[in-house]
Design a protein around this nucleic acid. Structure first.
Length: 558
RNA sequence: GCGCCUGUAGCUCAGCUGGAUAGAGCAGCGGACUUCUAAUCCGCAGGUCGCAAGUUCGAGUCUUGCCAGGCGCGCCA
């Protein structure tokens, strides 16, 4: 609708230029928006205000000129008026709204699809948890955000691939191996030492038990046993992670192992390239990269004195691989504690000629857990954390995802487990789902009364004249551009607010029927009922499409 | 000390590229089910948008400086 309006405005402007009603000036940046105040119409534009300085005229006067010469070939508008200090307010004609409504029903589950992404190949990397322990709440937030973002990006015409980067090459996995072996030894010898930085969670003991069932750890050199424990432990953890994510309705196209970068020689190739670009130098026995040449505040170590490569080394290599696979854009979702890492990553990429916006990093602020009015500090090392699995068991996937997705990624999330548990009927997700279930219920009722949807809505829709009905259509009309905005701003949380708003508009409509029987959807006026069923069906499509993008179910009964 | 993020109603948070009278949920108070699901709806109350300057037709939104909180500033990952 906005794009149709901007077409109207632009042809109007050109017309005014051509006939000298306005001076020819460059087209300014202007906005078309939905005003807060309904008295200002369905849409409003600040175009006259933005033209004023170039035209050297009073903006209100410009507004009047534009309104007077408005070119509306498609009869989009019922009314357009100039308003102080220099807005134009538009009222869309009912017929145009009915056209929108028809198109929603025609498109069904495809309503909202758009081509904003222009088929651009984008790789979204998220979760990427170390395979040294179960997923916790923070990972859940990242998983919900990343997954929903991918769903929305695909819907908006991006060619999306999802990737989980497995950090299986570093020290962490070895420490996991040491922890497992220690727990195993402790079964018979409680004095056996536990590694200083070891993982304390109960799951480590479980891993020890499971691994020792298949492998005779006792008859092995410690070194060999640790390696086996690390390898087996990682395998099992990865499988658990995969299972948890699957249950959380999150899937990946690629699982990329850090170790592959070493084994395939890609890391060496990357180093060679950096060498050619004179980006590397040795100092005090370590190998450094000149990231400070590209905006980082200092140079970084790539190979330590002891000959081990840093995480950063493989990460550079990894990101170069993304581009080689043909992705013209990468989105990484990281915990906010990694924010200091962005400048060096971008610097390393710049050294390879990447443009600054090739990589977008979405930082997720931390999830704090509250229980019994107290904050619970989470630490994987100390084994003190609530797992994603536990959360899902408590509140269900739908509620968990919704809560994660109602906050902007920039906002820290206080997850009060008591509250969300208690919220089982209070949680906003049920509010949206209930609207969907209610609509399904209406259709069941209509079927009982022998009223079905019209084959052709023509001639019926003019019966939709209530404010509540028009409000529904208007809200639904904004769905595609909302999704396009989300895909550009990478802010999926806006969808939850939109759906809550749409559900509220529907509930209000529904309830107006309890007070005023003539407003009920199913009445004994068959044509009226059909028109309303048509409307309400569209609402059902939009809600179920929206919930689908959030990875949340749309129940037919509650 | 430097960097990133946050500060909006009692609480948890929205506020779309600056737009006209700042919103929702929860909590509080008062109402609405003989009729399509009351997991709903309606009403009331609740705000110096952290503070102070600046930019302009116009600032919760942009700039600067303070104040407060979170997170980073490793040859850890």
């Amino acid at each position: 609708m906005k794009s149709k309006l901007s077409t109207v405005l632009e042809s109007t402007i050109n017309h005014c230029f051509e006939y000298g009603f306005l001076k020819k000036t460059p087209m300014p940046d202007y906005v078309i928006e939905i005003p807060n105040n309904p008295e200002h119409g369905h849409f409003a534009t600040n175009l006259p205000l933005t033209l004023a300085s170039g035209q050297k005229r009073n903006p209100l006067e410009i507004a009047s000129v534009l309104v007077e010469h408005l070119i509306d070939n498609e009869n989009l508008l019922e009314k357009a008026e100039a308003a102080a200090p220099g807005f134009i307010n538009f009222k869309i004609s009912p017929n145009e709204w009915y056209r929108v409504l028809s198109s929603i029903v025609r498109l069904k589950e495809d309503y909202g699809r758009n081509i904003t992404g222009d088929n651009q190949k984008v790789l979204v990397e998220f979760v990427s948890a170390n395979p040294t322990g179960p997923l916790h709440l923070g990972h859940g937030r990242g998983a919900a955000l990343g997954d929903t973002l991918c769903r929305i990006l695909s819907f908006c015409g991006y060619d999306v691939a999802r990737e989980f980067y497995v950090n299986d090459a570093g020290l962490q996995v070895r420490i996991l191996g040491e922890s497992i072996l220690s727990r195993f030894k402790q079964i018979n010898d409680s004095t056996y030492p536990f590694p200083e930085n070891g993982y304390h969670g109960d799951y480590v003991s479980d891993l020890a038990k499971k691994i020792s069932e298949d492998i005779e750890l006792n008859h092995m050199q410690d070194e060999e046993a640790i390696e086996l424990c690390a390898q087996k432990g990682e395998e099992i953890m990865l499988e658990e992670i995969r299972k948890d994510l699957d249950e959380f309705r999150v899937s990946f196209d690629f699982w990329y192992c850090e170790s592959d970068l070493f084994n395939s020689g890609l890391l060496d190739k990357t180093l060679k390239k950096l060498e050619e670009k004179k980006q590397l130098y040795e100092n005090e026995g370590a190998l450094w990269i000149r990231t400070s040449d590209f905006g980082d505040d200092k140079d970084r170590v790539i190979r330590k004195k002891d000959g081990q490569f840093t995480y950063f080394a493989s990460d550079i290599s990894y990101h170069l691989e993304k581009q080689k696979k043909g992705f013209t854009r990468a989105i990484d979702i990281w915990g906010a504690d990694h924010h200091g890492y962005i400048p060096r990553m971008k610097a390393a990429l710049s050294a390879h000629g990447f443009s600054g916006d090739w990589l977008s990093v979405i930082l997720i602020q931390l999830v704090k857990l509250w229980k019994g009015g107290q904050e619970i500090k989470m630490s994987k090392r100390a084994g003190d954390f609530v797992t994603l699995q536990e959360l899902v068991d408590e509140v269900g996937v739908d509620a968990a995802r919704f809560v994660f997705l109602t906050k902007s990624n920039d906002s820290p999330l206080d997850f009060d487990i008591d509250l969300v548990k208690k919220q089982d009927s209070d949680n906003p997700v049920y509010y949206v789902q209930y609207a969907h279930a209610r609509i399904c219920s209406i259709f069941r009722k209509a079927a009982l009364d022998g009223i079905s949807l019209p084959d052709r809505p023509e001639g019926l829709l003019e019966r939709l004249i209530l404010d509540e009905e028009m409000a529904l259509i208007r809200t639904m009309a904004g769905f595609p551009s909302l999704l396009a905005d989300i895909s550009r701003a990478l802010e999926p949380h806006r969808l939850t607010y939109y759906l809550t708003d749409l559900a509220a508009t529907f509930h209000r409509y529904f309830n107006s029927g309890t007070k005023t029987p003539a407003h009920r959807i199913v009445t004994n006026d068959v044509a009226q009922s059909q028109a309303r069923l048509f409307l309400v069906q569209a609402v059902r499509f939009v809600i179920s499409n929206g919930l689908g993008l959030l990875g949340i179910s749309a129940p037919e009964k509650m």
